[in-house]
């Protein structure tokens, strides 16, 4: 504990409401976005994110759909994340589309202040990384 005292903890639901509002307003250049799957789920568990593949990579212009599930312990624990669109990428399980925390450090070294936006932005960054940028890809539009 620092002398400035313990930080204010925003509880799960209010944190997700903030994320919802931010997602509704639209983020940055629009290449990542997200929204809630069921507008009546008071616990705001299931979300769908979209990533537009980064320029100068095999992913350029492709649109990827990502499912994020925020359980009761979010954001103390990370959401589970899986690609709905097929993608060949080092951190993604090729059978299931699940983003494997062992190969995606943001999930493995999760911090409470990370958001779904951070995850999607980091996934987009990884698509353009040397290990992923040139990998041969499944047909556009195919799904897991």
């Amino acid at each position: 504990m620092t002398s400035s005292g313990s930080p204010v903890i925003v509880p799960r639901n209010f944190r997700l409401l903030e994320e919802l509002e931010r997602g509704e307003k639209g983020i940055g250049d629009g290449t990542v976005s997200y929204g809630m799957d069921d507008g009546e789920d008071v616990f705001m568990r299931s979300w769908t994110g979209t990533i537009i593949g980064p320029n100068n990579s095999v992913h350029e212009g492709r649109i990827y759909t990502v499912k994020l599930f925020c359980d009761k312990d979010y954001p103390d624990r990370p959401p589970s994340v899986r690609f709905h669109s097929r993608i060949n990428m080092t951190s993604v399980n090729q059978e299931t589309g699940v983003v494997d925390p062992r190969h995606f450090s943001m999930l493995a070294q999760w911090r409470r202040e990370y958001t779904m936006e951070n995850i999607l932005t980091e996934l987009k960054r990884e698509m353009a990384a040397p290990s992923n940028r040139k990998l041969q890809q499944p047909p556009e539009g195919s799904i897991f």
Binding site: L17, G39, V42
Partner: peptide, 19 residues
């Protein structure tokens, strides 16, 4: 303060998420 309903309610000033 931030406040929201957790119980579903039919009210013109309260939305589906209880806001």
């Amino acid at each position: 303060p931030k406040v929201r309903f957790l119980t579903k309610i039919y009210h013109p000033n309260i939305d589906k998420l209880g806001r």
